[in-house]
Simulated scan of single mutants.
Amino acid sequence: MTVEPSNSTLQTLVEIAVSSVSTLESIYQAHGASFPSLDLIATVCPPNKHHTNLDGGGMYVSAGLQYIVETSIPDIMKEGDPKVMHVDEIASKINVPTEANGLARVLRFLATHHIFREVTPNVFAHNRTSSMFCKAKTLKEIRDDPVTQYNGLTSTANLGHCLDEGLRSAAHLSAWLQAPKGSIRVSPFLAAFKVDDIWRWFEQPGNELRRNRFGSLMSNTQWEAEIFTYAIRWDLFPETSTVVDVGESLRTVSMTLARKFSHLKYIIQDLPQVIDGDAGTRKFWAKEYPEFVQSGKVQFQPHDFFRPNPVNSPDVFIMRAILHD
């Protein structure tokens, strides 16, 4: 069980830290030894305990986080009593059958890692860390439209992706690295999900939530588009200049540039379903900047960036958030 520190407990903690440093220095000086390199927690943690944290505990934190995010427990607690909620009440509001005792053990384990607080036995509350796992939508909106539950400016899309696709891929990393060349797929992800192309996999029926979540995380985890307006002296380019934005999706770098440097021409490239889908790039531009679309100064070009680019000599290629692919 965790408790909120008071001023007196904080002062006590400082005093313990200071006295412990003095004790450690005295011991090392008495033995004529120099203090080892300061590797944060690993320095003060016994090696066997540190190994346990590395090879065992970490995966359970990830598994616990995956459970609470996928069942929207932070959102349930956000809309309940503003201070505390009993596990029985939380369990009754989860959209899948849940055993309260098991839920309590998960939340208690996370609380020992400073995610949630157990204020009294089986009664939990948010803290700063756990509140970051709340989604932007209300619980009703999440239930009414699960596919878009990760939409909005929060970190949950990235967390959900890493704990689903990422965690399963990580489990295949060692086998993938040790496999004879050519005997296994080209990445741990493709080996884990037994597919040959992540983008086509995202488009398969049943992956609507994952596809939408990935699009949301790509939109939410990038730098502000405005920084690109002063990255290059765009004002020095003549009116015949062309900017090709590769893998633009719905991100707004080109639109931000177009609003400020309307003398340039822009070509937006992405996969066909991204360009012309129901909520695709073409419709996004038509809604947000219709006059630029009507003027013909922006073009939309279906393109797979793993293939040779059909534009041979533009003035600028923008390749933001795609080189890692």
Rank of each mutant, 00 (worst) to 15 (best):
T129E: 07
I76R: 10
I227Y: 14
K78W: 05
P121F: 00
A191V: 14
T148G: 00
D278K: 14
R251F: 11
V311R: 15
F305R: 01
I16N: 13
G32L: 11
W176E: 00
A42E: 06
A63M: 14
F284V: 01
G58S: 13
A157Q: 00
K297G: 10
Q178A: 02
L40Q: 08
I275N: 07
A30V: 04
A33T: 04
L250F: 09
L209R: 15
F292L: 12
L177D: 02
S174L: 13
L163S: 09
N95D: 11
A157P: 01
P82G: 01
F237P: 06
H51S: 09
S295M: 10
E248L: 11
V293M: 05
K181M: 09
A91C: 02
T229G: 08
S262V: 00
A231S: 10
E291H: 14
D81L: 07
L163A: 06
W176H: 09
M255A: 04
Q29V: 03
Q222Y: 06
V147C: 10
S155E: 06
Y150A: 04
S72G: 04
D75W: 09
R105G: 07
G277D: 07
V96A: 12
H303G: 00
I232L: 15
E291Y: 10
F202C: 12
P205C: 02
V316E: 07
S219E: 08
T71K: 03
E248F: 07
A175I: 11
N151W: 14
V311M: 14
K265Y: 12
F284P: 01
N101W: 08
S254W: 07
R128T: 08
D304H: 00
F189Q: 07
V293E: 04
V61M: 12
D164M: 04
T43S: 13
V243W: 01
N101C: 06
L173T: 11
P290M: 10
F237R: 05
V123C: 13
F202H: 13
G166W: 02
T120C: 09
P97F: 12
V84N: 15
P121M: 01
H51I: 07
L38E: 08
V243A: 02
F284R: 13
V246P: 05
R213D: 01
A91T: 03
D235F: 11
S92Y: 06
N151T: 07
P180H: 08
G58P: 05
T120S: 15
G296W: 08
K78G: 00
Y230T: 11
E4C: 10
S26D: 06
I90K: 01
L110G: 05
T148E: 03
H263I: 03
T242I: 13
C134H: 13
S254C: 05
A136Y: 09
N312G: 12
F109G: 01
V106A: 02
E15Y: 11
V21Q: 15
G166Q: 03
S19Q: 08
G277N: 08
A30N: 07
T148F: 07
P188I: 00
P36W: 14
A225F: 08
A111D: 02
G152D: 05
V119F: 08
N207A: 01
P205V: 02
A125R: 13
H86I: 01
E291C: 09
R233L: 06
T12W: 14
D39Y: 08
S92L: 09
